[in-house]
């Protein structure tokens, strides 16, 4: 376990504007506690941008740069270049972006900094839709989910974009998934990522009670169930080649996760079965790749 540094003592992290039960602030608090004060946050439009505080207020204990929605990856590359040119290479440049900025509007720029292997720690808090604008589907929204743009009768019919394997194909040094229900694992991954040079990508599931139509008190339970039902497995990929499962789940039925969320309430039995079988297949593939020497197959989501 990584010792708490108390970066948030003295009330520095108080006063944010996140909704009750929001995963994002819990995750951010632990990330910053591991990274420490030699960190600069680069943050695009999204929940985190708003809930950090409205001018002149900000809860951030470290320098915090807001960016346009689509520009966070490139802005971070610029911050990195600027730090290097002014003799401050030791500072960690951390992107803190939602799934909209990461999977969708900022995808081109993210792919570019991955291809260039920019020395950036890119962390995505994934709440699986455009929650800040009021629950519209993103390409991170899972199959069968209700959102305002995938309403009842037109639920999301496409699977979630497999961002980790897209980035793995860029051969970046480190990719990991993490969860606020597995804090030690999250902190260890942040600590590991901190020591690596190049683009590091952390993908953290961030429960969102208003968007998921769930009870705020259940956020950590849901984050735990997402892992235990294999909907959001915890793993690492190094250099786009070696994959390692970080946690052996109980492989609970997906219904335990789905049934606690209003966004999945319109699923038919058949659709629920589809989710179960796809989840099983994905986890099986991950298992088969676990610490194997064979190169990653990129067709993991084959229907």
């Amino acid at each position: 376990m990584i010792e708490e540094k108390g970066i948030f003592s003295g009330g520095e992290f108080c006063g944010h504007a996140s909704c009750p039960g929001c995963g994002e602030k819990i995750i951010l608090r632990h990330i910053l506690d591991v990274l420490g004060r030699k960190t600069i946050i680069v943050c695009p439009a999204g929940c985190a941008a708003v809930t950090d505080g409205i001018f002149p207020h900000s809860i951030s204990p470290v320098p915090f740069m807001h960016t346009p929605f689509d520009a966070v990856a490139s802005c971070a590359a610029g911050v990195r270049a600027g730090l290097e040119m002014s003799g401050r290479s030791e500072v960690t440049v951390m992107v803190w972006a939602g799934d909209g900025a990461t999977f969708d509007i900022g995808m081109g720029a993210l792919s570019a900094i991955a291809e260039r292997n920019e020395n950036i720690l890119y962390i995505c808090y994934d709440n699986e839709a455009y929650m800040n604008t009021g629950i519209q589907r993103s390409s991170a929204t899972p199959f069968g989910s209700w959102t305002t743009t995938t309403p009842r009768g037109r639920l999301k019919s496409e699977p979630k974009k497999d961002i980790n394997f897209i980035l793995a194909s860029h051969k970046i040094p480190y990719i990991a998934t993490a969860s606020p229900a597995f804090i030690d694992d999250l902190r260890e991954k942040v600590n590991k990522a901190k020591e690596i040079t190049g683009l590091r990508f952390l993908h953290v599931l961030s429960p969102c009670p208003p968007g998921w139509k769930s009870d705020p008190k259940d956020s950590i339970t849901l984050a735990r169930l997402a892992v235990e039902c294999n909907v959001f497995p915890l793993f690492e990929i190094e250099n786009g080649e070696r994959i390692r499962l970080s946690y052996r789940s109980q492989s609970l039925p997906v219904t335990e996760y789905l049934d606690m969320q209003g966004r999945f309430r319109y699923l038919s039995e058949e659709e629920t079965e589809t989710i179960q079988s796809r989840t099983d297949e994905y986890y099986k593939t991950l298992n088969s790749l676990h610490e194997s020497e064979q190169p990653l197959r990129m067709t993991m989501r084959k229907e």
Binding site: V42, A71, S74, G78, A81, M85, S86, R88, A112
Partner: peptide, 28 residues
Amino acid sequence: LDARFVKVESEHSAMATLIGASSTGVRT
């Protein structure tokens, strides 16, 4: 020239990169 040339994938990213770099106080 002692400068970092960031070889971006679009002009949008070129300007975004400079916005990031300029925010650290360097000349861009």
